[in-house]
Design a binder for these strands. Structure first.
Length: 590
DNA sequence: TTTAGGG
DNA sequence: CCCTAAA
């Protein structure tokens, strides 16, 4: 399209005519319905303006046939328009249109008519203006509308009415209202429209229209983007308009701006049920392309305004590209990524520290506190403390870790923090690891673990205490019976391979403890009798070690003498007097 | 690395 | 459960 093709003309009377329509030729080779999916076809691609008639003034007035139709729609609605002022350009009528052209025009007409359906009540376009030949389904009639005194207000009404009942966002409405108010105070009448209500209606209608053909979200997003785009464009135009006003440009130029607003309105009034359902099943895409038409049209550098628009829109190349070229496609990946990124950022910012894992949060609090403690005394520290919800027992930061482990070399604060971190992380991992072990193990872990954890927190490298369950003891005994005493690695490999928290050393230690326990228990049981047995029962209950297991341990101890333990074992099996002296302190201690 | 033993 | 020495 050439630049001239988009310029609207003024009638010979010299009055700016913003409704000048040129006869459009339909290119039969390009059909909206046969266009490939990936390449939306703008209307202007097959509506070719063959000629420029009167290029008098309006670089700022951009109307193609489609928008003119919209103007007609509005005029039908407004009821304030003097149809006498409409003149049909005889050149507009093309009685010799081919079949394909007729179809395309018919589609245009249907779109046009459909756009009316939402707002025209009991009024048939064809009946109101026979001259338009629209009832003849030739949508590309060229019209000349005299630029009468009422035109401005009319235009304003057009813009408002065309946008209001159909689809529009509050922004676009406001933009247009701004434009209108700057041009004609009469238009303020329309500013009383409830934009939110209009938004509701518009959205509802839009959803109805696309119920069967479009995905709601996609449609909404695209539509909103387009509207934002329009609003922005409006804004740009308004600014430009104001600058032009300052330069003393005639009011017709402002009308040009307003026509641009109408363009937006027209472009947004397309997806009406009538337009869609009267057409083929691909109505949604058609409507999209239809909208694209207006965008492309606006994008065409046909005037200074358009240039300004284009440049400004190029700055928004994302939106522009999306709106003008990728209408029937999904939003570009970059857009999605940016959106997601933005959402995630805002989400994170909103959530902040509250969504950290408790473990990390504790560490964060602690490290931050240590760091800040040097510089700030109270405020931030207190805030951090408040963030800590106390799921764990918080150890005072000045609490020396060496308290629990005096042998450890005194670590620095940072070192302590790191160690604590490791320890806590280890605890978490181990707990997760232990949980599927068995129900018993979970029971055992429940309360004691919390206490243990809180107590062992200060010590850096001490492993969390995990009580031996009876099942574990049984496994250990079985392992010893199979592999023999002292082959702890093998036992672990065979029976405790799934228990990462039980090392071979642990097995050895446990076996040693079992030996002691068995010695003690059995010895006491033999010696003292029932009274001590009751005590043993208590102890046994506390240890959860069945007596049968202890007996088994003793048998194994005999079979596989444990080094150096065998001495005590021997003493255990030795005369009672000797065992008494050694075991009494133990039993009493327990 | 594993085991034994002290703590 | 940790630590260390010894193998």
């Amino acid at each position: 399209m050439t630049l001239d093709n988009h310029r609207n003309k003024l009638p010979s009377n010299g009055i700016p005519n913003m409704f000048t329509c040129k006869p459009y030729q339909v290119d039969p080779d390009i059909s909206m319905f046969t266009a490939s999916e990936g390449e939306p076809v703008g209307l202007e691609h097959f509506l070719v303006q063959p000629e420029c008639k009167e290029d008098l003034v309006s670089d700022f007035i951009d109307l193609d046939a489609f928008q003119i139709q919209k103007c007609f729609n509005m005029e039908d609605i407004s009821g304030t328009f003097e149809y006498d002022q409409l003149k049909l350009d005889s050149d507009a009528v093309h009685p010799n249109l081919s079949q394909g052209e007729g179809k395309n025009l018919e589609f245009l007409y249907e779109l046009y008519k459909g756009s009316n359906n939402g707002i025209v009540q009991g009024k048939d376009t064809s009946s109101t203006s026979e001259e338009f030949h629209l009832d003849a389904k030739y949508a590309d009639i060229a019209l000349e509308l005299d630029h009468g005194p009422c035109k401005e207000s009319y235009m304003g009404n057009v813009a408002l009415e065309s946008q209001a009942p159909e689809v529009c966002t509050g922004d676009s409405v406001n933009e247009i209202l701004d434009l209108s108010s700057t041009n004609d105070p009469m238009l303020k009448y329309s500013s009383s429209l409830d934009s939110s209500l209009l938004d509701h209606i518009a959205t509802k209608e839009l959803h109805e229209a696309f119920k069967d053909v479009c995905d709601y979200e996609t449609l909404d997003r695209e539509w909103l983007q387009q509207h934002d785009f329009f609003a922005m464009k409006n804004h740009v135009e308004m600014e430009n308009s104001m600058s032009l006003i300052k330069c003393g440009v005639t009011s017709s130029e402002h009308e040009g701006k307003m026509l641009s607003s109408i363009d937006y309105a027209a472009s947004t009034t397309d997806p009406t049920p009538g337009a869609i359902y009267d057409e083929t099943k691909s109505g949604g895409q058609q409507v999209k392309r239809k909208r694209l038409t207006s965008c492309d049209f606006l994008k065409t550098p046909n005037s200074e305004v358009s240039k300004v628009e284009k440049s400004s829109l190029d700055g928004e190349d994302n939106a522009e590209t999306l709106v003008t070229q990728k209408r029937s496609r999904k939003p570009p990946r970059r857009y999605i990524e940016e959106s997601l990124d933005y959402e995630s950022k805002s989400y994170n910012k909103k959530c902040g520290i509250a969504y950290r894992r408790p473990n990390d949060r504790f560490l964060h609090v602690r490290s931050q506190k240590q760091k800040w403690q040097k510089y700030f005394q109270t405020e931030q520290v207190v805030c951090q403390d408040d963030c800590f919800d106390g799921n764990c027992i918080q150890v005072p930061f000045d609490l020396p870790a060496e308290k629990e482990h005096p042998k450890k070399n005194k670590s620095s604060v940072v070192q302590d923090s790191e160690d604590c971190k490791d320890n806590r992380l280890l605890c978490l991992g181990e707990k997760l690891d232990v949980e599927p072990f068995s129900a018993e193990s979970q029971e055992d872990l429940s309360e004691d673990e919390c206490v243990t954890r809180s107590y062992t927190k200060g010590s850096s490298r001490r492993k969390r205490h995990i009580s031996w369950t009876p099942s574990e003891v049984v496994k250990l005994v079985e392992g010893v019976s199979q592999c023999g005493v002292g082959r702890w690695t093998e036992i672990k490999r065979l029976l405790f391979s799934s228990s990462s928290h039980r090392t071979s050393v642990d097995l050895k230690d446990k076996w040693r403890n079992l030996l002691r326990a068995s010695c003690t228990q059995l010895q006491i049981k033999e010696k003292v009798g029932l009274k001590m047995f009751v005590e043993q029962g208590r102890k046994q209950a506390s240890n959860n070690i069945p007596e049968s297991v202890l007996w088994r341990v003793r048998e194994l101890a005999v079979m596989y003498p444990y080094p150096r333990e065998s001495k005590s074992k021997v003493s255990f099996t030795a005369p009672p007097a000797a065992t008494n002296t050694t075991l009494v302190p133990l039993s009493t201690a327990v």
